[in-house]
Design a binder for these strands. Structure first.
Lengths: 340, 340
DNA sequence: GCTGGCACTCGACTGTAGCGAGTGCCAGCA
DNA sequence: TGCTGGCACTCGCTACAGTCGAGTGCCAGC
């Protein structure tokens, strides 16, 4: 049962009005606010069909209609054009991001910017280590049996980790260790390092072997296994924007979900190149976020992707505007990274 | 007009009951639940006095009494004994904190632990740079005109920053720069470094002068001026615990305040040695937090203090329990830091 | 100085009624 | 066939009146 153009127009009008007013929209108001060219009665008939098909629903018998998740999906896929950003917004993005001095700085500014522009919760993943390459590994002696391992990645990320050596290691040996790990791992993608680290141990001279073994363990742990991903979050206060009307009465589950880094990574981490991902309500795999929508995308210098970013808000959100903003911010950040 | 012992007992009973039930408490219920040894009528007289003195108030004429901020203050100062922690709690703390591998790790575990134990919002300040000493400064060449400056502090903090040199600097000169800054700044308290950095520039050989000047600028910026403080936060979902009943109807201002790092620092950063600080409702300088209470203290290895930690919750909180937990966690973290 | 008793207050809850936005259906018209 | 105007109906929302009861303040008496 196809939906003709007018029915689609009605759906679009319902979504737009509901997003704007946050109130169920009735046939009469629709006809008044949009030039549909037909009478309320006709709109009612169309609405009945849209409801049968699951695109809208009535909260109460005597109330207007509200889009369902399915309705929003159709709207996003077929009924909305991405709004161009206003010059003011473009300027805001530029002004916010220039002057960033640090990767940390870039990420923090970005997440705040996103939250501010979209008036929603923003999430930015630091450049993924898995997608980074080793630029340099530094070993700083803290004491004779302790080293600080510092890894600098090409994406600007810097990770450090304390290494407890099994026995004292003289300074010259530390120099050797440093040279060896850099020769072997420098320039390599982090995801490719495990076998190289293994080889490093096997190839190292016997007097270096114990220290190298410990170092290798830490390297693998730090760089590949353990919390390799970092996340920044901002704008949680925006959750309270629509009263508690959104999120079906309780922010609790949403706030809980946002505290779990793993959850956040799921939200914005799985990115394919140059795709905007929009997950609406029920489409979210995370139960706590069934009442929320997530708009996310990848970012990175040029065409490569090093991490994800996005925003989270009520299903009742301004999708075209949000999508446009997320995309624009992702591009700017990518350009910024490309400059370094 | 002094308050005799019974009146104080009545106040204590009111606070305890209200914290437990979250409902205004009346004279009759009080007499039933606590062995006050007098009749409701007598309690009513005492309540009238307590109300006159501003320790309690009536939300409505025909309702029970609720403690005021002033009432809580008196309760905390004179009426409550710190509850000893349960063995289960002690064990939880130990189990949670052992196995931390990193300063980051310690801080993250601590903040989550605090949030979990107190069921409130937890805030932990990273060891303050101002209270740290330089353990080592590392300069890693990224290109001929770019260095990565890495500072490792004795408290375990590691800060890095990109340095854009005015002109290419050969590797040997980088080695010299590294040696010079470490000789001058190694072991120094960060707060003492500015004049030393200045001296460093003045004393450096002429061919190193331009690079050293840039380096000095970055050193001062990174280590002393700019976002030198870091903060970890957890448990915001706990704000929704008491319904929206706490926080006079809106989480908004609270969530907003928690997004501002400056605000958080104000909350837990200003610490004197071995003091528990309890700020109740109106006592908070931050307007957005007039409906909240903050329990905070300093922590650090041994008797020295390197940072602050604490929790934030509704004024209607279990002060004795919260104070005990915050104190215990601060001690454990201090011990943990002392081991490194 | 404590107590029991008593009149009073006032919020919470219940039930009723009217309003009005919005609907579904139907007959009529192009 | 498809759109329209009309009409009866639903039902949430608001206002209002009435009842209930927890809790109070006050007072006389022990």
């Amino acid at each position: 049962m196809g939906l003709d153009d007018r029915k689609l127009a009605v759906l679009r009008a319902i979504v737009e009005d509901y997003v704007a007013t946050q109130e169920p929209v009735g046939s009469k108001a629709l006809v008044e606010r949009h030039r549909l060219g037909v009478s309320p009665a006709t709109v009612r008939n169309d609405m009945a069909v849209l409801e049968d098909e699951g695109y809208i629903r009535q909260p109460h018998t005597s109330a207007g209609r509200v889009p369902t998740d399915r309705g929003y999906r159709l709207f996003v896929d077929r009924l909305s054009r991405v709004k161009p950003l206003s010059p003011a917004e473009r300027r805001a993005i530029e002004r916010f991001l220039i002057g960033a001095v640090d990767l940390d700085d870039v990420v923090h500014r970005t997440v705040r910017l996103l939250a501010q522009l979209t008036r929603q919760v923003a999430v930015v993943q630091y450049p993924s280590l898995a997608r980074s390459s080793v630029r340099h590994l530094e070993l700083v002696p803290i004491s004779t049996t302790r080293l600080m391992l510092v890894m600098i990645a090409d994406t600007g990320r810097v990770e450090q980790r304390l290494v407890e050596l099994p026995a004292p290691v003289p300074a010259d040996d530390v120099t050797d260790l440093r040279r060896l790990v850099n020769e072997k791992l420098g320039g390599q993608r982090l995801s490719d390092t495990p076998p190289l680290v293994q080889a490093l141990v096997e190839e190292s001279a016997s007097h270096l072997r114990p220290a190298m073994t410990t170092l290798a363990t830490v390297l693998l742990e730090t760089l590949v296994e353990r919390h390799e991903e970092r996340i920044a979050l901002a704008g949680t206060a925006n959750l309270t924007r629509g009263g508690i009307l959104d999120f079906q009465g309780s922010l609790r589950p949403v706030l809980e979900a946002l505290e779990e880094e793993v959850v956040l990574l799921k939200l914005i981490g799985e990115v394919e190149p140059s795709t905007m991902r929009v997950r609406i309500g029920d489409e979210n795999e995370i139960d706590n976020l069934r009442a929320a929508s997530v708009v996310s995308t990848g970012y990175g210098p040029g065409a490569t992707i090093v991490g994800g970013l996005g925003v989270l808000g009520p299903t009742r959100m301004d999708y075209p505007g949000t999508i446009a903003t997320v995309r624009a911010v992702a591009r700017y950040v990518g350009d910024l990274l490309a400059q370094n």
